[in-house]
Design a protein around this nucleic acid. Structure first.
Length: 295
DNA sequence: AAGATGCACAACCGCATTGTG
DNA sequence: ACACAATGCGGTTGTGCATCT
C-alpha cells in the first residue's frame, strides 16, 4: 500500500548514532520541532533517513525518557499489561511514563519472558506450562495458579465480548475480542472507583496499577481519567479508539447483562486481586529466577 | 591472558495503518 | 473511492560489553 522504501537513497548512513549526530538532531528538534520526519534529515543536515531520526529521537533522545533499570513496580505492570494486551508494546509503553516500546520489548524478551518460564508460566499465553517445561518450581505455585485463574477469566470475558453485542454493540462482522477493553477499563473512572473500593476493603491487595499510580517512581497511571473509547464501534486499535467518551462507556457498561457484568467483574476483580506482594515476589527474587541456568 | 559464549540494548526492516490530495 | 506518502508498530538483527572456561 504505497510503502515507501526507507534509506533507498545511496549515501545514507546506517548503524549506531554518534554523539555529533545526536547533537544535531536534538538541536534541530529543539529549534524547529520534529515536523515532518521525512524532510528532517535533509533540513538538519543529517545523512540519515527520517525513519532512523524518528526512532533515535523517540527511543533515545527524547527528554522525557526515563533512563535506567526498570523498577519492580514497572516490571509487574509490564507483565500484567502483557497478559491483557499481548505483544502490543506501544500500548504497554503508554502506561509506563518515560518508557519506550522498544525498551519494554527488550525488557520482556531478555528478562521477563525467561523469568515467567522459570515460574512455569508460558510467556505467550500466561498460562501454566503443563508438560514438563523448563521449570523447577511446582506447577501449582500461587503465582501460577493466579495467572491461570486470571487468564481463564480473561478468555471467558473475551469470548463473551466477542460473541455478544451486549457489551460493544459491535457489528456482526467484528468478532475479534478487544483487549483494549481491559486497558480502558483499567484507566476508566469505573475501574478507578472500583480500585478505590477495593483498596479500602483490602489495602494489601491493591492492583499494581493503583500501586504504581501512588508511587512517584512509576508515574501517572491513575492520572488518566476516562479514556474508554468507542466501545459501541467495536474498534480495536488504540489510536482510533481514543475518543474519550465516558458516557458511552458508562452506558455500555451499565447496560450489559448480568452475565457480561459477571465476567468483566471477574476479570477486573482478578486484576485487583493480583498478588503483587506475595505471588509475584518471584520478580524480586532475581537471584533465583534471573538466569536460565537456575531454572 | 585469551578466546568463547551469553546478554543487553540500539537500530533496522518491513508490514500495517493513517492522512491527504 | 482511490492512490500515494508519511508514520507507527512489532519482529528481528547486529554489536559491544561482561562473564565464563
Amino acid at each position: 500500500m504505497g510503502r515507501t522504501p526507507c534509506c533507498e537513497r545511496k549515501g545514507l548512513k546506517k548503524g549506531p548514532w554518534g554523539p555529533e549526530e545526536d547533537e544535531i538532531l536534538i538541536n534541530y528538534i529543539n529549534e524547529h520541532g520534529h515536523g515532518s520526519w521525512r524532510s528532517h534529515p535533509k533540513l538538519a543536515g543529517l545523512r540519515r533517513c527520517g525513519k532512523s531520526c524518528r526512532l533515535r529521537w523517540t527511543n533515545y533522545l527524547r527528554p522525557d525518557i526515563k533512563r535506567g533499570p526498570f523498577t519492580l513496580d514497572e516490571e509487574k505492570l509490564v507483565i500484567q499489561l502483557h497478559a491483557i494486551l499481548g505483544n502490543r508494546w506501544a500500548a504497554i509503553a503508554s502506561q509506563l511514563p518515560g518508557r519506550t516500546d522498544n525498551e519494554i520489548k527488550n525488557l520482556w524478551n531478555t528478562h521477563l519472558k525467561k523469568r515467567l518460564l522459570c515460574m512455569g508460566v508460558d510467556p505467550l499465553t500466561h498460562e501454566p506450562v503443563t508438560s514438563g517445561g523448563p521449570t523447577s518450581r511446582p506447577r501449582s505455585s500461587p503465582a501460577t495458579r493466579h495467572m491461570a485463574q486470571w487468564e481463564s477469566a480473561r478468555l471467558e470475558a473475551e469470548a463473551r465480548l466477542s460473541k455478544g453485542s451486549l457489551f460493544f454493540n459491535s457489528p456482526p462482522t467484528s468478532v475479534k475480542p478487544d483487549p483494549d477493553f481491559f486497558l480502558r477499563l483499567w484507566n476508566s473512572e469505573v475501574g478507578e472507583s472500583i480500585r478505590k473500593l477495593n483498596g479500602e476493603a483490602k489495602t494489601d491487595c491493591r492492583s499494581p496499577i493503583s500501586q504504581a499510580s501512588s508511587s512517584t517512581k512509576c508515574g501517572s497511571v491513575s492520572g488518566v481519567t476516562v479514556d474508554v473509547g468507542p466501545i459501541a464501534a467495536g474498534s480495536s486499535t488504540p489510536k482510533s479508539s481514543r475518543t474519550e467518551d465516558p458516557i458511552m462507556f458508562d452506558a455500555s457498561f451499565s447496560s450489559c447483562s448480568n452475565e457480561s457484568e459477571d465476567s468483566s467483574d471477574t476479570a477486573l476483580q482478578l486484576l485487583l486481586d493480583f498478588p503483587i506482594n506475595n505471588d509475584m515476589s518471584f520478580l524480586e527474587d532475581v537471584d533465583t529466577y534471573a538466569t536460565p541456568l537456575q531454572c
